[in-house]
Design a binder for these strands. Structure first.
Lengths: 243, 243
DNA sequence: GAGCCTGGAGAACACTGTTCTCGGAAGCGA
DNA sequence: TCGCTTCCGAGAACAGTGTTCTCCAGGCTC
């Protein structure tokens, strides 16, 4: 946020900027997006509303900042948990990504809604966000690629991909290095699709839990999520060779 | 909405009530929830804002009505499409539920966001909604149950369910008749979990497309969704015996 | 030390949801 | 047909909201 040398003014500016985001995030946790009020943020900081406009172009700008911030925090939590595990324990790493993602969502439901719920109207993802938003799915892909590298193949039974999806996969595979994902030289297109689907299912499951679609259906969401995670790991051939 | 005999007053009231909802739904399609304004609805009907309160207790009440209305319409679209297919063509019925659901979402993205996006703050699902909300997953379950009835088993390879999930499944199975879902006498618990997961994956996939999480990843969402649908049908053993 | 410029104050505008009172008109029973 | 009741809409008001504008003082920069 601050460039190299920091004048006193720049320091003050940075402090205020982060203070605004911090307060906004705290209020977001209390009331949820849509109810987040710029004036409330200003009040909390003993500021007049118009003063906030020195730092942000408006309410949506603050929300945008909270979104990138949320992706950063979620990604950080997932990365931290997975990095603490031995690289060879693919199954533990895979489950870690799933449970850490859910854990973060359960702890920060409003931020989760901001990231994966209805998009905010004025929001156009800045360039920085697109790489941040891929952290979770990137970790999923990392485990799968490591499994292939260790000679664990995917169970048979997948049909060939239709042409449109093949094109999509090529697009994705070409963009992997830019996202910091180390992929094998020859990426299996089916792996790419399955990882994308597993990611979708992961986020969908957590969203269903947090958004109340599982009432009267799933009373043990943690257990259920682990079940789904193991299911996908089996389909991706992550478990030990002896089934 | 109207009970048996309808006095002129009741007629007028019903007409106004539906008119308000209709206008609200049209405006919702233009601006999205959160931007939907009670005053704008009133303006459109040449009404003063306070007059709307004769029919709805507030803005959230209108949104609640739009939610139940949305579930009804989505469910109706799905049911209509599936009922037009021969009951024995399980695969076609299965795909129909998937593609019809996506098609409705693509046509009504804001209503989709209302149903499956971030929950509305003041919204507590009325009793009527819980049955409406299960229409899509109920149709998925119906296809699977019909497959079992026709002697198509699920492919092997599923691990036993952990105790918490077993309890959840029993709860769900006990509630099936109340939802109008005809289930076999002995419901396979794994089938219930898989249907729930397929439903989650379906909604998650459409949401990811509509909410912009698939940019730079899935340029052919229709084809991708069909791929996912077929994938689940294979895991559920819906296709003809000869693979 | 002179000057610029930045950040905050304050007022104002156009909205929003919601509550209240009040009037008139339409429906209803006799 | 008359009179009463009920109900619907108008209107004003209040407390909020996001946003824009002008103005000014203080601190930073040169």
């Amino acid at each position: 946020m601050s460039d190299g040398r920091s004048t006193p003014r720049q320091q003050h500016r940075d402090a205020r900027t982060t203070a605004i985001v911090e307060v906004a995030r705290r209020l977001l946790g209390e009331v949820g997006p849509g109810q987040l009020s710029l004036r409330a943020v200003a009040r909390e900081l003993d500021l007049v509303p118009s003063a906030v406009y020195r730092y942000f172009s408006g309410r949506d700008h603050i929300l945008t900042e909270l979104i990138t911030d949320g992706y950063r925090r979620l990604g950080g939590a997932v990365a931290g948990a997975e990095d603490a595990l031995p690289r060879d324990d693919l199954l533990a790493r895979w489950r870690s990504v799933w449970t850490t993602t859910r854990g973060w969502g359960v702890e920060h439901p409003h931020e989760w809604a901001l990231l994966y719920g209805s998009p905010v109207p004025g929001y156009a993802a800045p360039a920085e966000t697109v790489v941040l938003a891929t952290m979770v799915v990137g970790r999923l892909a990392g485990v799968v690629f490591d499994a292939r590298e260790r000679g664990r193949p995917r169970p048979a039974g997948a049909p060939p991909l239709p042409p449109g999806t093949r094109a999509d996969v090529e697009q994705v595979a070409a963009g992997l290095p830019a996202l910091g994902i180390t992929a094998p030289d020859e990426v299996d297109p089916v792996d790419v699709v399955l990882v994308l689907d597993a990611w979708t299912h992961l986020v969908g499951t957590v969203s269903f839990e947090l958004f109340g679609h599982y009432v009267n259906a799933v009373a043990h969401p943690q257990e259920h999520l682990e079940l789904v995670a193991d299911d996908w790991s089996r389909r991706l051939g992550l478990e030990a060779a002896a089934g």
